[in-house]
Simulated scan of single mutants.
Amino acid sequence: MMTLLAPATVAVFVYMLLLWLPELQDPAPVLRRWSRTGSNPAGIHAVDAVVTAATGRFAARHALTETQTALLNGMSSRPAMVPVTLLIHPALVRYDGTRFVRGSAFNLLLAGLAGLGLIFPPTVGAALGDVPLWVFPLTDIVTFAMGWFLLKNALSDISLINLVLTGKH
Rank of each mutant, 00 (worst) to 15 (best):
L4W: 12
T52D: 15
L64V: 08
G56I: 04
V124W: 15
R33V: 04
L24A: 02
V84D: 05
I158R: 10
L138C: 09
L87M: 10
A145N: 02
Q25S: 09
F13N: 00
I44C: 07
L17P: 01
P41K: 13
L165I: 07
L109C: 11
F58T: 02
P122R: 07
F120S: 13
V135G: 08
E66K: 14
W34M: 10
Y15M: 02
V142W: 10
L17D: 02
L110V: 15
N153G: 01
F149V: 01
G117E: 09
V135T: 14
E23T: 01
S104V: 15
T123F: 10
A46S: 10
M146F: 14
T67M: 07
V10D: 00
M16T: 12
H169Y: 11
F13T: 04
G56W: 03
D140K: 08
G147P: 03
A59S: 15
M16Y: 10
I88P: 03
F106Y: 15
A91L: 12
R99F: 09
L31C: 07
L151T: 00
R61C: 07
V47H: 07
N73P: 02
F149E: 08
W20Y: 13
A53Q: 14
A80N: 11
K152T: 11
L4E: 09
L5R: 00
A49Q: 15
L86Y: 05
I88S: 04
F58N: 04
T69L: 15
G112V: 06
R102I: 06
T143N: 06
N40R: 07
P90A: 08
L72W: 06
L109V: 10
P27G: 11
E23A: 03
L163A: 13
P29W: 00
A145Q: 02
T143F: 02
F106W: 15
H62K: 10
L21S: 01
P121V: 13
H169L: 08
V14D: 01
K152R: 14
L18Q: 10
L31Q: 04
V51K: 08
V10L: 12
D96F: 11
A63I: 09
P121M: 13
P22L: 01
V135H: 09
H89T: 03
L86F: 05
A54W: 07
P132T: 05
G125N: 14
W34P: 04
V101N: 09
T65N: 04
D48Y: 02
I158L: 08
H62D: 02
D140A: 11
R78M: 06
A145F: 00
L116N: 07
G38V: 10
